[in-house]
């Protein structure tokens, strides 16, 4: 199972980025083999509009199964839902702690966005 988390740095102890579409990186964690890799989000971070939509499209292309994120807006949520990607909200501070909480069943699957969208 592949899990994506928005991060500000490039390892398991990185703080989670509170932004989804405009995160610095995504850490993609594979539960098979417990390995991870980093996807740079720089290009999307700097796009004038639709960052959440593009980030969600990217995760769909990466064949991600679930997303653990601090925030997720309504447009991104629509794309993630259409791609069948499950969304879990967390307020854990690091990637490692968020993954731990997820493994221990402490995170519940979101059925909606948890922040308002931007107008553009």
């Amino acid at each position: 199972m592949k899990i994506a988390l928005p991060t500000t740095e490039k390892d398991l102890d990185s703080p989670l980025d509170s932004r989804f579409g405009r995160t610095s990186y995504f850490l993609i964690y594979d539960t098979e083999g417990e390995i991870f890799r980093i996807v740079d989000n720089q290009q999307i971070l700097n796009s004038p509009q639709g960052a959440g939509i593009q980030a969600a499209e990217n995760l769909a292309r990466e064949k991600i199964d679930c997303l653990i994120t601090v925030h997720c807006g309504p447009k991104a949520y629509r794309v993630l839902s259409a791609a069948g990607i499950k969304v879990f909200h967390t307020d854990e501070s690091s990637v490692r702690m968020a993954l731990e909480a997820w493994k221990n069943g402490k995170l519940t699957e979101a059925d909606s966005a948890n922040v308002e969208g931007h107008w553009v």
Binding site: Q49, G50, I53, Q54, E57, A60, R61, K75, R78, V79, A82, A83, G117, W119, V120
Partner: peptide, 23 residues
């Protein structure tokens, strides 16, 4: 449609496209 739209107002991920009229 999704590949053409510079504004990400229409998005297809191998599915029927989603439309975001506000974009």
């Amino acid at each position: 449609c999704s590949r053409l739209c510079a504004f990400h107002a229409i998005v297809s991920i191998g599915t029927h496209p989603l439309v975001f009229p506000e974009l």
